[in-house]
Simulated assay, not measured.
Amino acid sequence: MSKDNKQTGPNQRMLRVGELVRHALAAIFARGDVDDDALRGAVITVPEVRMTNDLKIANAYIMPLGGLHAEEIVAALNRNAKFIRGRVAPQVNMKFAPEVRFFVDDTFEEASRIDALLRSDKVQRDLDEDDGETE
């Protein structure tokens, strides 16, 4: 059986490098190393960095505090990606530093949407009906 077509999750190395890049990005943002008007005063969190299989691209998911101006901040980070890559390189100790691409992290928004659905009257009514049938 060939492994070529098999889809698997990230391996240990991808996870480890992703975590190193995440920590490096968080430190860069905390120090305010990136000089861009859109980033002034922004507190940016980096919940996740996903590496490609070849470790050449780091997809960094970011969220500014409060979610304000997320798209503008992502655009500013992508404009400064080469500079950021240069700052990340010495911290990840790899032969080649990965290209960093920034995206808005929507997992919190998605979790809130699911939570709101689960708390909706219709779902609560369905749950109450199910409770009555099992007794």
Rank of each mutant, 00 (worst) to 15 (best):
residue 31 R to H: 13
residue 40 R to C: 07
residue 12 Q to K: 12
residue 25 L to Q: 11
residue 12 Q to C: 04
residue 2 S to N: 12
residue 31 R to G: 10
residue 18 G to S: 02
residue 35 D to C: 09
residue 4 D to N: 11
residue 21 V to H: 13
residue 32 G to R: 09
residue 42 A to S: 14
residue 36 D to T: 03
residue 20 L to E: 13
residue 30 A to D: 13
residue 8 T to N: 02
residue 43 V to C: 15
residue 24 A to N: 09
residue 8 T to A: 00
residue 35 D to F: 03
residue 34 V to K: 06
residue 34 V to H: 09
residue 6 K to M: 07
residue 37 D to Y: 04
residue 3 K to D: 06
residue 4 D to Y: 05
residue 31 R to K: 14
residue 25 L to M: 07
residue 4 D to M: 03
residue 33 D to Y: 11
residue 23 H to A: 14
residue 20 L to C: 12
residue 21 V to F: 06
residue 14 M to K: 02
residue 3 K to C: 00
residue 31 R to P: 14
residue 12 Q to I: 10
residue 34 V to S: 10
residue 9 G to W: 00
residue 27 A to H: 11
residue 15 L to S: 13
residue 15 L to K: 12
residue 12 Q to S: 10
residue 35 D to S: 13
residue 22 R to Q: 14
residue 13 R to Q: 03
residue 38 A to H: 09
residue 43 V to G: 14
residue 2 S to A: 06
residue 32 G to W: 08
residue 34 V to R: 02
residue 41 G to H: 10
residue 5 N to C: 01
residue 16 R to P: 03
residue 18 G to V: 06
residue 26 A to F: 02
residue 42 A to W: 01
residue 22 R to H: 07
residue 4 D to A: 07
residue 4 D to L: 05
residue 10 P to F: 06
residue 7 Q to F: 00
residue 12 Q to M: 13
residue 22 R to A: 07
residue 27 A to R: 11
residue 38 A to W: 01
residue 2 S to K: 01
residue 19 E to A: 07
residue 20 L to M: 15
residue 38 A to R: 11
residue 40 R to S: 10
residue 5 N to Q: 04
residue 13 R to S: 01
residue 7 Q to M: 00
residue 16 R to E: 11
residue 41 G to C: 10
residue 23 H to R: 15
residue 39 L to S: 12
residue 9 G to E: 07
residue 9 G to D: 06
residue 5 N to F: 01
residue 14 M to N: 09
residue 7 Q to K: 02
residue 42 A to N: 09
residue 34 V to C: 07
residue 41 G to T: 08
residue 43 V to Q: 15
residue 13 R to L: 00
residue 33 D to C: 14
residue 4 D to S: 05
residue 10 P to L: 11
residue 13 R to I: 01
residue 40 R to D: 09
residue 11 N to P: 04
residue 22 R to Y: 01
residue 7 Q to L: 00
residue 11 N to F: 00
residue 6 K to P: 00
residue 9 G to F: 05
residue 11 N to T: 00
residue 25 L to G: 12
residue 5 N to L: 08
residue 43 V to T: 15
residue 30 A to V: 08
residue 21 V to L: 09
residue 39 L to H: 04
residue 4 D to R: 03
residue 20 L to F: 08
residue 41 G to F: 04
residue 23 H to M: 09
residue 12 Q to P: 03
residue 21 V to Y: 02
residue 36 D to Q: 08
residue 32 G to V: 14
residue 20 L to S: 14
residue 18 G to E: 01
residue 17 V to P: 05
